[in-house]
């Protein structure tokens, strides 16, 4: 009879692997993205089993919640012609699968030959001091440099995403368009009330 951690591990692992295969096999990009979300959710469960509580929650909140939603938006916005993408180059299938199996077998052999065995895990997360606090302590002392760099990488992504996609694209931009000036307009600039004598009608 399997103990609870192992039972959950195998359950989550099976869900993750099956939905990963679904990502690769499915021809519909929306379905593939949703299956990837399922893979991430299952993996978050495994991470919880491995005492990485903060990261598991962050995976769901940030990665699935923001990045995968962004993916879904772009996939749906791009209006891809699905029928033309359904062709699969099936002649590569046997060779590809064989190469993958060979590499997988080698990796398994390496893992079987020397891996460390588990001892205790009190440095990661314990009942008194939570995972988040320990992560925070380490992050802001030892890894401060990397923390700042990660912020810069996000800045780079922001600049690039804006510069590459923002702007008038297929229309020639009007050179006389100054939005700030338009907003600052007041009624005096546009409307002029003239007093006229009424004509006899």
């Amino acid at each position: 009879m399997l103990a609870f951690p192992e039972l959950f591990f195998y359950l989550f692992a099976t869900i993750a692997v099956l939905s990963a295969v679904g990502v690769v096999v499915s021809s519909n990009p929306v379905k593939a993205t949703l299956l990837l979300v399922l893979t991430f959710a299952a993996c978050a469960g495994i991470w919880l089993l491995l005492r990485a509580e903060f990261l598991a929650i962050m995976l769901i909140l940030v990665y699935v919640g923001a990045v995968m939603v962004l993916f879904l938006f772009v996939v749906m916005m791009l209006d891809i012609n699905l029928t033309s993408l359904k062709q699969r180059v099936s002649s590569y299938l046997p060779l590809g699968v064989m190469v993958m199996l060979v590499i997988f077998a080698e990796l398994t052999w390496v893992f079987l030959s020397d891996t460390p065995t588990s001892v205790s895990s009190d440095k990661i997360s314990s009942e008194n001091v939570g995972n988040t606090l320990l992560l925070g302590e380490l992050m802001f002392t030892e890894h401060l440099y990397s923390f700042e760099l990660a912020a810069l990488i996000l800045l780079v992504a922001m600049i690039l995403a804006l510069v590459l996609t923002l702007g008038n694209f297929n229309q020639t931009p009007s050179k006389n368009l100054d939005v700030a000036k338009q907003v600052r307009v007041s009624s005096k600039d546009r409307l002029k009330i003239i007093k006229m004598e009424s004509e006899d009608g």
Partner: peptide, 23 residues
Amino acid sequence: MITAYLGLEMSSLTLYGLVAWNK
């Protein structure tokens, strides 16, 4: 390894975007 990866990615991401500069 962390700083090597972060430095590598920072330069690589910038270069991916710069290659697409001619929109």
